[in-house]
Nucleic acid binder design. Structure first.
Lengths: 200, 200
DNA sequence: GTCTATATGAAGATAGAC
DNA sequence: GTCTATCTTCATATAGAC
């Protein structure tokens, strides 16, 4: 069945999200206009409003999809018999996931202040769920005497901040492969929580 | 000698920087208008242009002052007979410096993409000088067998990212004093580079 | 040094034709 | 579903009076 000429609802929606993602990451939410997004997609600005009620919803949609994806993936990838094994799989997952989504990650951290209070609260809830997963691993390790961590809450935030830093410098064509990067960060993470080498 | 009424060049300049700093940190450079800054200072928008040629220069000025201040302070505060001692003083300095300047720090990291290419290059040069100071400490420690670091460049970036994370959660009225926070991060940093406890 | 007024352009969002 | 045209507001920056 032929579509009406100029009608592309099945692909325009994703293309709008892709264009907004790239532009928001590069220039910042506030600095990007709906006209720029439309130009990138190849439609007129007015057409965007068939897909999003406003610019704010476009940002929230991107961030929510990212966080939901992060939460569903982490549940599938993080496992292990010991706290150290679970921490290693968490570190490797976190780096791999974010290396593959630099724009999403950049937005998720940089554009929080451009969310309305309601939307901000919803994203924060999702982020908190993710952090709690890491803190639970650290708490297990401390309880079992496998980790030496002065404060599991701060260690959680410190570890995530350290791991997130990878996206400020990692480039696929650089001197290190993703696996090498994962290994280096796992070494640092393992040492930072005082876990013995080789007990994994 | 009485000044002309309405003439306040000696205080308006700093007040413009203060207002811009606060507003840029809270809402982002692109989302803040010159009118908002002027209103915060208590003048009309046109008056701002007696102090800055344009909005871009205002941002660059804030970032450059911050980085110059960071570099002059770190040289005065970081010292020690051993790499571990120097690393500890670096960690404590970095946290103390940034805890006291949350807005400056936020802007220095979040608004890099809103600098013109020329201004960006100048700020990056300053940032690089700071990172090199930390890397030199790590290299010394590795050379002396005091640290276990798989890659000093990545460890430098990882440590700074971890330390910067403190500004995402620290509040002066929170459960931990600044000295406690410094101690916790120093524990994590020390362990992450594989330095033995007590050799400082 | 600050004001008022303004030039000039672009922003988000909507209406109605096709 | 997309277009063109437009409403309304706001932006940066400048000119010239005081």
């Amino acid at each position: 069945m032929a579509r009406t000429a100029g009608s592309h609802s099945d692909i325009t929606g994703p293309r709008i999200r892709e264009a907004a993602l790239t532009l928001f990451a590069r220039h910042g939410f506030a600095a990007v206009s709906m006209r720029q997004i439309a130009a990138e997609v190849g439609v007129q600005a007015g057409a965007l409003y068939n897909y999003t009620p406003d610019k704010q919803s476009l940002l929230f949609d991107l961030m929510q999809r990212h966080m939901e994806s992060l939460l569903s993936e982490v549940a599938r990838h993080v496992s292990g018999a010991t706290p150290a094994a679970r921490l290693e799989s968490f570190v490797r997952f976190h780096i791999g996931f974010h290396i593959g989504r630099p724009d999403e990650m950049f937005i998720a951290y940089m554009e929080l202040r451009n969310l309305t209070p309601d939307n901000f609260a919803r994203i924060e809830t999702l982020r908190r769920r993710y952090e709690d997963m890491l803190e639970a691993i650290l708490q297990d390790g401390v309880a079992q005497g496998a980790f030496s961590v002065p404060d599991t809450k701060i260690a959680t935030l410190g570890l995530i901040a350290m791991l997130n830093g990878v996206n400020t410098w990692y480039r696929p064509e650089g001197r290190l492969s993703q696996t090498q990067v994962e290994g280096i960060y796992w070494d640092m993470a393992r040492q930072s929580v005082g876990a013995e080498q080789g007990v994994v």
